[in-house]
Simulated scan of single mutants.
Amino acid sequence: MSTDFQQARVALGVRLRELRVDAGLSGRELAGRCGWLPSKVSKLENGKQTPKPDDLAAWAQAVGRPAKLAELKGRLTGLEVTYRSWRRQLATGHRARQEIAAAEHLNSRVIRAYEATVIPGIFQTADYARHVLTHNADLRQTPRDTEEAVRARMKRQASLYEPGREFRALVWEGALRARVCPPDVLAAQLDRMAGLIGLDTVQLGVVPFEAALTITPRHGFWIYDERLVIVETLNAEMWLDDPADIALYGKAWERLDAAAAYGRTAHFLIARARAALDTA
């Protein structure tokens, strides 16, 4: 769980405790008014459990402060907007998440991305995307809407050819070699990557294995203009709009960019990865 999310959940718990104490109620008394076990009150106040909107409504009513519900829900919304679990996002499949990503692309003029383990979605071939989405659905046991999600991802790629947009993508060389699909599918994907180099709206850099680094590759992230950073982890996605967070990820991107190869050297690295498929 992200530190930012946990800190926000603890802060919400502290606020709930303040309201209870101000009302002169013990944890057991509040639990009785809400029809809960006392342990639930403890978990909520100590940031060990994320409250549901109904929990907050019951709490505000129990402490005699129904007017505080709007404040509490605002805190919960802020917490959930920052930390979006894949379980919730993919409850109905992958297509909806692809459409959300498309909307962010359309609302942005300059997108900077870094991926360490996978080809960026906006550059993926349909076959490659199909394998990646299938693996994710298997891991998370989410509904299978793979073909709809693939079509949504391919539709999103139309923005690559729109004048006025700029995609600055960095890929760790390992992502070019990760066998998340059969060799022939990966070969076609690498050909697609090579073909993007030189496109007016795309700046594609590859961070070589041999590069001297001032930052470890770590996880992927996307920076949308200077207003939003989206970070994907195994269990969740974080949407960060705090200026300090955006500046931090911008600095990380610049350090990786300084180590990246472009143009003919990037072509060579892609060709090297493709050649390795023939010798495996």
Results as ranks from 00 to 15, higher is better:
M1F: 02
D4Q: 13
F5E: 11
R9I: 01
V10F: 10
V14H: 14
V14E: 15
V14Q: 14
R15H: 15
L30H: 00
G32R: 14
C34A: 10
C34N: 01
W36G: 02
S39M: 09
S42V: 04
K43I: 01
L44G: 07
N46I: 02
N46M: 04
T50R: 12
K52M: 10
D54E: 13
L56A: 03
A57K: 14
A58P: 03
A60L: 12
E71C: 05
E71K: 03
E71S: 06
L72V: 10
K73C: 07
G74L: 05
R75M: 15
R75K: 09
G78L: 02
E80T: 14
E80Y: 01
W86F: 14
R88P: 02
R88H: 13
L90W: 11
A96I: 07
R97I: 09
E99F: 02
N107F: 01
S108T: 15
R109M: 08
I111K: 01
E115K: 01
E115T: 05
E115R: 00
A116T: 14
P120H: 00
G121P: 08
R130E: 09
R130Q: 14
T134Q: 14
N136G: 12
L139D: 13
P143C: 04
P143Q: 00
T146R: 07
E147N: 10
A149H: 02
V150W: 00
Y161C: 04
P163S: 08
F167A: 01
A169M: 12
R177Y: 00
R177S: 08
V180G: 11
C181H: 05
C181K: 06
D184I: 00
A187L: 08
A187C: 02
A194H: 14
G195E: 15
I197N: 12
V202Q: 09
V207T: 01
P208F: 06
F209T: 03
E210H: 11
A212V: 07
L213S: 06
L213Y: 08
I215T: 10
I215K: 06
R218W: 11
H219C: 12
G220Y: 03
I223E: 01
R227F: 05
W239R: 13
D241Y: 10
P243H: 07
P243N: 07
A247Q: 11
L248P: 02
Y249D: 09
A260Y: 01
H267A: 11
F268T: 15
R274S: 06
R274P: 00
A276Y: 06
T279K: 13
A280V: 10
